[in-house]
Amino acid sequence: MTGEGLRRWSSVPAIAAVLFQLGVLYAPSGAGSAPFPNFDKLVHCAVFALPVFFAVLARLPMAPVIAVLAVHAPVSEFIQATLLPNRSGDPWDVVADLVGVTLGAAAARFALHRRPTAGSAT
C-alpha cells in the first residue's frame, strides 16, 4: 500500500472516534443511570481523549487537533444546556473533556515515540 493510501486508512479510527463523540455528546437524552458516581466524567474524558489520540496517530498536526477539541469542550456543554431539552450543561464536564484532550495528546506522543522506525532493529 502506498504512503497516501496508508495515511487515508490511518484516519479511519479518528473519524470513527469523532462520530462516536458527536453521538455521545449530542444524543437527545443521556444514557440513563450511571454504574457509579461521576461515571459521566469518565465518559467525557474518554470521548475527548480518543479523537485526539487517533488523529495524532494518523499524523494530523497536533496543535490544531488539540485546539479544535479544546474549543469543542465548552461549546458542546453550551449546546447541551441551551439547545437539547433533555440535556444539561456542566462546567465539570468541560474540565473532564480538557483532561481527555490532554491525556489523548500525551498518549499519542508516547505511542509515536515508541514506534520503531523503518529499518530499525526491534
Rank of each mutant, 00 (worst) to 15 (best):
A67T: 13
L112P: 07
S88M: 07
F39C: 09
I66S: 02
C45S: 12
R109Y: 05
A46G: 12
R115G: 03
I15E: 00
A55V: 02
P116M: 12
L42W: 13
R87I: 08
G89L: 07
T122S: 13
P28A: 13
A17T: 05
D40P: 08
S120W: 04
V71E: 02
A96C: 12
F39D: 09
L83I: 01
V99N: 00
H72S: 14
P116R: 15
F53I: 05
A81I: 06
A27M: 12
R115Q: 15
G119N: 08
L83D: 00
T2A: 05
P28C: 09
P13F: 04
G23Y: 14
L6W: 08
A14M: 06
R114H: 12
R115D: 01
A34N: 15
G30T: 11
A73R: 03
L98E: 04
Y26T: 14
A46N: 04
F20I: 15
F20V: 15
P37W: 03
F36T: 06
S29T: 15
V43Q: 00
E77P: 05
P28I: 11
D97W: 02
L98K: 05
W9H: 06
D97F: 06
P116V: 11
M1V: 05
G119T: 06
R109A: 14
D97Q: 07
K41S: 09
Q21W: 10
F110H: 13
T117F: 00
D90P: 03
